[in-house]
């Protein structure tokens, strides 16, 4: 090595240099995306041959954003995604935690069998059941304001309901509940609480960390949905953001507008992530604790 290995300052400098270079690798596509979203198409394409690609220089404007809004009902897509994501996350927290509560604290006939089925579904990749699921939801009944209908295609519910319950979320809740001090639950029972009261007065208020984990994991899955809405939603009215991207790839691609749209749908998540990065990282780490 060319430098004195005992020189503390130099070693520190090299460490930080390595860390920063790696950071560049992870960050450059995003920097490129954000900067490009302000540039007209011809400049955007020309800039890729130099470092200008990563700098907000030249003919900077918000035109691409206006263009994107003109080309596609962006607000509608965002609204759809927010609605679908929000509803799924909330319902999932409620329904999965209830089921997990039952698995963790209650004794009932068939519990162990049901729990093993739930855990076994962990190894079924969604992609392998997408097509049969499509056939299934296209024939399911629904009772709405207009009476009985058949088929769930082109709705919000088809994007929400199949995603509410999943093995991983239930598993995470069960693990967490089993780690709670059992005497708290017993104290609640002796004091006269029903199981439902134990659930919402004692267990739920103590489940902040696992609720955050489950919410974040579900949020990432739902906000980034692609394959499923692609095949079950043909009507614009119900399209989420990722599928909305299709509008920007007809005939000749307006790259500036694409970048504006990508920035628009990505940056809120990034900000959300930066604020809650500890919780995000902890939630991923906790999925690794299984096994």
């Amino acid at each position: 090595m060319a430098f004195d290995p005992d020189n503390y300052g130099l070693r520190l400098f090299v460490r930080y240099l390595v860390l920063c270079l790696i950071a560049l690798i992870f960050i450059f596509p995003l920097v490129f995306m954000i900067n490009s979203s302000f540039k007209p198409d011809n400049q955007l394409l020309a800039d890729t041959s130099s470092l200008r690609a990563f700098l907000p220089v030249g003919d900077i404007s918000l035109d691409n954003y206006f263009g994107a809004f003109r080309r596609a009902p962006v607000a509608l897509f965002v609204l759809n995604s927010v609605l679908v994501t929000g509803a799924t996350v909330l319902l999932s927290l409620l329904i999965c935690s209830l089921a997990a509560f039952s698995f963790a604290f209650l004794r009932w006939k068939g519990r162990d069998v049901v729990l093993s089925i739930v855990i076994a579904t962990l190894i079924i990749p969604f992609e392998t059941i997408a097509i049969p699921l499509l056939l299934l939801v296209s024939k399911l009944p629904w009772i709405g304001l207009e009476g009985l209908q058949w088929g769930w295609l082109n709705t919000y519910r088809v994007q929400i309901i199949p995603w509410i319950a999943d093995g991983l979320t239930i598993f995470l809740f069960v693990q967490y509940f089993k780690g709670l001090p059992g005497e708290l639950i017993e104290a609640g029972r002796v004091e006269g609480a029903s199981w439902w009261q134990v659930y919402y007065r004692i267990v739920m208020p103590l489940s902040g960390p696992v609720l955050a984990t489950a919410a974040i994991l579900k949020f990432l899955v739902m906000y980034n949905q692609y394959l499923w809405p692609l095949i079950v939603v043909q009507q614009e009215n119900y399209r989420p953001i990722m599928v909305g991207l299709g509008y920007f790839f007809q005939l000749n691609v307006a790259w500036g507008e694409v970048m504006a749209y990508l920035t628009l749908i990505t940056v809120p998540v990034l900000i959300f992530y930066l604020f809650l990065q500890r919780a995000f990282i902890a939630s991923i780490a906790s999925t690794g604790v299984k096994g």
Partner: peptide, 30 residues
């Protein structure tokens, strides 16, 4: 005393029914 079949099933049913309908069933369907 410590067996709560009714409550246990009631709590677990929504989640299990959803998993059954939208994961297990399509799986066998496939």
């Amino acid at each position: 005393l410590t067996l709560s079949n009714r409550t246990g099933w009631t709590f677990a049913l929504p989640g299990f029914a959803l998993i059954f309908t939208f994961i297990v069933l399509p799986f066998f369907f496939a």
